[in-house]
């Protein structure tokens, strides 16, 4: 009886989370130009429009991809030294640096967005796509920083001692012992950053300065003229990509551990 009730409760909650997603997916099948649910005159034409024929969506998708992968690479590269210092030294300076680097992620993004408008405005690069990439890298550096720190803490120190007794220098030990074991954590941090950058709206909305648009910004702009089913295809693409990426993290990394579950269980 208790089991049944808890199953029903969990099912209801899953349904409430899935409901708007399902509705968006179904709306993508609409034949007409308006968004109806349930879809009228189902067709796959919207998918063709989104990926092949409509210039504006193709370009936004390209921008989204460039910004997501560019900023995630940059964030991982920038996070590695901090995470490493934090693990090796754990002194006040490295802790302060890690804290400051996580600030953009921890505070309401709208404030960081406003600040970036001024920042890029002064340097004359507001509206350049590279400034968008750097903005997202700064915003999401906290993610690889977290996964890398979790990974470094779970390293077996005896391996390092073994390397040191056999005469390995710090850089050799880093290359041959630490780096291979840290690969899954580096990848997880990278993909967390990719997915969040892909879906981020408010900061790009500020720093793109209407010079270019990503898929999320494009959807928000079209939102004022009413939804069209083509936008829903964008949503489906993004959701599928997220599920795929997290499944990969779960397959090759240890998802419950990354999210802080007890390791022994």
């Amino acid at each position: 009886m208790g089991k049944l009730i808890s199953r029903i409760f969990m099912g209801t909650m899953a349904l409430w989370i899935a409901l708007p997603i399902l509705v968006v997916c179904a709306a993508a099948l609409n034949g007409g130009r308006t968004m109806f649910f349930p879809p009228e005159d189902p067709t796959l034409q919207r998918f063709v429009e989104f990926f092949v024929t409509e210039e504006i969506w193709i370009r936004s998708l390209q921008n989204s991809l460039i910004i997501a992968f560019g900023s995630a690479s940059l964030a991982v590269l920038a996070a590695w030294p901090i995470a490493y210092w934090l693990w090796r030294k754990a002194d006040r300076f490295s802790k302060l640096l890690a804290g400051l680097a996580s600030m953009p992620f921890a505070l309401p993004p709208i404030i960081f967005g406003v600040g970036l408008v001024f920042f890029w405005g002064f340097s004359g690069s507001l509206g350049e796509i590279w400034s968008g990439i750097v903005s997202h890298a700064a915003l999401f550096i906290a993610l690889p920083l977290t996964t890398l720190s979790i990974g470094l803490q779970s390293l077996d120190r005896s391996h390092l001692d073994a390397a040191a007794t056999m005469g390995a220098t710090e850089s050799t030990a880093f290359r041959t012992v630490i780096l291979p074991q840290m690969l899954p954590f580096t990848a997880s941090g990278f993909f967390f950053a990719v997915v969040l950058s892909f879906n981020e709206f408010i900061v790009v909305f500020f720093v793109s300065a209407s010079a270019y648009s990503t898929v999320t910004v494009q959807i928000f702009n079209s939102l004022r003229n009413g939804f069209t089913p083509t936008m829903a295809v964008g949503a489906i693409t993004f959701i599928s990509a997220s599920i795929l990426i997290f499944s990969l993290i779960a397959r090759f990394g240890n998802l419950p551990q990354l999210l802080g579950a007890d390791k022994s269980k």
Binding site: A14, I17, A18, L19, P20, I21, V23, V24, A27, M35, F37, V195, L196, F198, N199, E200, F201, I202, T216, I219, F220, L223, F227, M231, A232, A235, F238, I239, S242, I243, F246, S247, A250, L255, P256, L259
Partner: peptide
């Protein structure tokens, strides 16, 4: 966890779109 992570990263724009239709 995969299910929730995927919905967690879902942009505010998409969430609003879904509820707007509903």
């Amino acid at each position: 966890l995969i299910f929730f992570l995927a919905s967690l990263t879902l942009s505010e724009v998409f969430v609003v779109m879904g509820w707007d239709i509903l």
